[in-house]
Design a protein around this nucleic acid. Structure first.
Lengths: 115, 115
DNA sequence: GCTTTATATAACAATCTGCTTATATACTGA
DNA sequence: TCAGTATATAAGCAGATTGTTATATAAAGC
């Protein structure tokens, strides 16, 4: 994989800080695959709605995700045009795509429709 | 860069947790370039000797560095055979090799000889 | 306008992190 | 064997992190 423009120490460490949380890393792996509505994520993860919202806020503030409001729902997805794209892609690529937790989460997602 | 065997969620998040600290990231970038003696690192960084020692311990426990005792000194270097090698290399590659802080640290190192 | 649903923010508690100082350990050379 | 140097570990503290519950905001539909 080709490395993009180097990141500043600050951007790099800030991004790593955001990625190091297990819940948040799973979240981003999913958001890099397809977009999800907040209410879907809340149902998929075993944490409260505010907790999900706060994780998403961190990603938003770091410029890693795109938020799109549609009706009363908000959809999030990874933003491949962010400056940290190469880093994030590399990090996510280290994870086993067939990781048990990931499979379970994707499976849970299938059973959910934001009403 | 070819991606190696995938890492477990735990190994990946533990490794990211270790890398996210600015001091520690600089430290590893240096240790990936060449080996350093602890006393050199203590002189180079503006933190106490125990602080350096504790950072190195984290890397040791994560299996990221090799420690070699020679006389009364201990030398550390990055271990390219560690399971996280691909991840670490990718992360370090995001950093500007000509980063001001890095240049200064390398420069400081030249002026030091562990007596 | 009121109620319901979706989401964000605020306030707070528990835990974790990274530093410091103090102390222990270990090697070296007189 | 003792003093000096190099390094590790322990204890403690301040600030950061991540969850919780409570509350605010905003859109949708009656």
């Amino acid at each position: 994989m080709v490395t993009a423009k180097p990141l500043s120490m600050e951007t790099l460490t800030e991004t790593l800080k955001i990625l190091h949380d297990p819940t948040r890393l799973l979240l981003l792996k999913l958001l890099a695959e397809k977009e999800y509505c907040v209410c879907e994520l809340v149902e998929m993860f075993d944490i409260s709605q505010p907790a999900v919202s706060q994780h998403l806020r961190k990603y938003r503030q770091a410029g890693l995700v795109i938020e799109e409001k549609r009706g009363q729902w908000r959809y999030y997805r990874f933003d491949p045009s962010c400056s940290q794209n190469a880093l994030v892609k590399n990090v996510l690529a280290q994870l086993d795509t067939q990781d048990e937790q990931l499979i379970q989460l994707r499976h849970k997602a299938e059973a959910i429709t934001c009403s």
